[in-house]
């Protein structure tokens, strides 16, 4: 697949082939995230939601970790505004994503930008960032990836909500540790960037400290902030790969 991309790079590709290439980029994401969508659907039913509620949440919020936190809170008697605030807190990292990626959407029509931000998940951001490093990001490619992830996320949610009782022990199939492995792969994909190792060390240690002393989900924003401040204070001229 990579050889094919290299030979086609100089010529501008059609929207359809960009769309299909984007959809191909979604395959690993679908493989890694589907177990969580199924688990989300199953847990949503356990916590008193209907299959429609679960699907509606996947379709509108479209953010795995925050949806998990949300249904966990639905199961208890918790004030509605506190549930919304918790979901906002878990998703707060997207503020940083949209700040970083917005530069590369600026040449698209407004409706495409509005749609692109709706589809801005962790892997979508990572793929778009690495492509933006080399060239302009075509909307068809971005949308192909985003739509594919979106459709499978919702289908897997519905499957979990309807047939969730059939899933095996989540611990035995490693479900609690699949996402860290997947995100490690994404982090490794950026290892050629300036300051990568110092950034990873500082953000990693800071997030562990924040996890222990402040708690989840704030460790994400606090840990990321530590790394971003490092990039901010080191003079740009000395930030070499």
């Amino acid at each position: 697949m990579s050889a094919e991309i290299i030979t086609q790079l100089p010529a501008r590709r059609s929207s359809l082939s960009e769309f299909l290439d984007g959809a191909r980029r979604a395959i690993p994401v679908v493989v890694a995230s589907s177990p969580f969508a199924v688990l989300f659907g199953a847990l949503a039913i356990d916590n008193g939601l209907t299959p429609f509620d679960a699907l509606f949440m996947s379709m509108t919020v479209f953010g795995g970790a925050s949806q998990m936190v949300g249904i966990e809170l639905f199961g208890h008697k918790i004030a509605p505004w506190l549930i919304v605030l918790s979901i906002f807190a878990v998703n707060f990292r997207h503020v940083l994503y949209s700040a970083a990626i917005g530069r590369h959407f600026a040449h698209w029509p407004l409706w495409q930008q509005a749609l692109a931000y709706f589809l801005l998940t962790d892997p979508q951001f990572a793929e778009a960032e690495s492509r933006a490093q080399r060239e302009r990001v075509p909307f068809a490619w971005y949308f192909g990836m985003g739509l594919c992830i979106y459709v499978f996320w919702n289908m897997a949610t519905l499957a979990g909500a309807l047939f969730g009782r059939l899933i095996p022990d989540p611990h035995a199939i490693g479900l609690d540790f699949l996402l860290p492995i997947y995100f490690l792969g994404i982090v490794m994909g950026f290892r050629k960037r300036p300051m990568w190792l110092p950034l990873v060390l500082v953000s990693g240690v800071a997030s562990m400290i924040a996890y222990k002393f402040v708690g989840s989900p704030w460790h994400v924003s606090l840990g990321a902030l530590a790394g971003i401040i490092l990039a901010l204070i080191v003079p740009p001229s000395s930030q070499k790969a």
């Binding site: 990568w196 562990m208 989840s216 971003i228």
Partner: peptide, 27 residues
């Protein structure tokens, strides 16, 4: 306009944020 330091900070976002999704699970 975006200052070069802000630009460097924005370029740090992928590694900085995504690392925090991995690191605490090591604990």
């Amino acid at each position: 306009t975006i200052h070069p330091r802000i630009e460097a900070a924005l370029n740090a976002v992928p590694a900085a944020v995504l690392t925090t999704l991995v690191a605490p699970s090591l604990l």
